[in-house]
Design a binder for these strands. Structure first.
Lengths: 180, 180
DNA sequence: ACCTGAACACCGTTCAAGT
DNA sequence: ACCTGAACACCGTTCAAGT
């Protein structure tokens, strides 16, 4: 006997699913995000999820997008370019596992690939903006790429927050100095 | 009717499995490595694989280890520290997808976590060795970490070989210059 | 429009049983 | 020591059928 929740708005139902997916993702990663399990928790049939998301990867994108928006909500305050980059990297640390998930799924699903492109270019723009005041326009692009790579590489490693911060600081300071 | 291949040495049979796993991994990634599928290809029952590898992750480690050893076989030639790092990064590029797989599985399986620690420390030693001739001993550790992060971060991104090389070159050159 | 129940074709892993 | 067959408890996805 399919219960029909025509009374509840589409947005609310969508929100419920994304929120549940988000929770799973945050504390268990991709392997903890199971459509079957999610439906069970929400008291739905597995197939119900597919009414809202044609694919598990679509759900993944929706959930990760929400997580990311939450992180970006806490806006960087003013400061030098170096401190702003450090702050940025620190915010992204908790996002790194999902970053890798996105990277891996992007090879399998076009939705995820498109999402990854959007996120990366958003980050690059934000970073280039931050750096534009202390790097010449001719070197801005490559410098931004190098700083971004440094950040992602540092976040990839499983080291202490203090160690991470030290390496990032050293790296960013040197990268922001004109080549000798 | 279990065929018993007591005539074939254990090593040969092990080798056969690892080789097949390696093939799948190289051109399809982790999701293409299926114990069931592997057994099918080798004409074995699924359970037969488990006589040699207690877990899919054990098989993963064995296969990735072989892939990595093959890459490291092509030994870096002499040159400046910068060119050697560039060469190194280029070699590792094809390994990057598997690097991420290892990173993700490490959170789930201790075998993979141990393997990751070994590989990372091996790389760090090689890199520190290369850098020791142009970086002071007091800054060697952090510089090596920064260079390694830069490499991993650059490899993470899906950009052209030329772009990658340019960013790496700029980054490494600046990182190897004493801070101002 | 929304949801169910049941099926499909997969997984990784375990285990009693055979040689 | 080595391997099979069959089971277990999962997956993601599809689809006819119901309200």
């Amino acid at each position: 006997v399919p219960r029909n929740r025509a009374d509840v708005s589409r947005e609310e139902k969508l929100d419920e699913i994304v929120e549940a997916a988000r929770d799973r993702l945050v504390d268990g990663g991709y392997s903890a995000l199971s459509v079957a399990d999610l439906a069970r928790q929400l008291g739905l049939a597995q197939a119900a999820i597919y009414w809202y998301f044609p694919t598990k990867d679509h759900l993944l994108v929706a959930a990760v997008d929400r997580i990311l928006k939450d992180i970006l909500e806490r806006k960087p305050r003013r400061g030098t370019a170096v401190t702003r980059v450090l702050w940025f990297a620190e915010q992204l640390h908790e996002f790194q596992d999902l970053r890798l998930t996105i990277r891996e799924r992007a090879a399998r699903a076009e939705v995820v690939a498109a999402f990854e492109r959007d996120v990366v270019s958003l980050f690059r723009v934000m970073l280039a903006n931050s750096l534009s005041e202390c790097v010449g326009p001719d070197q801005l692009d490559d410098t931004a790429d190098a700083v971004m790579a440094l950040c992602e590489g540092v976040l990839l490693r499983d080291i202490s927050a203090a160690h991470r911060r030290r390496v990032l600081k050293l790296g960013v300071e040197r990268l922001l100095v004109p080549a000798s």
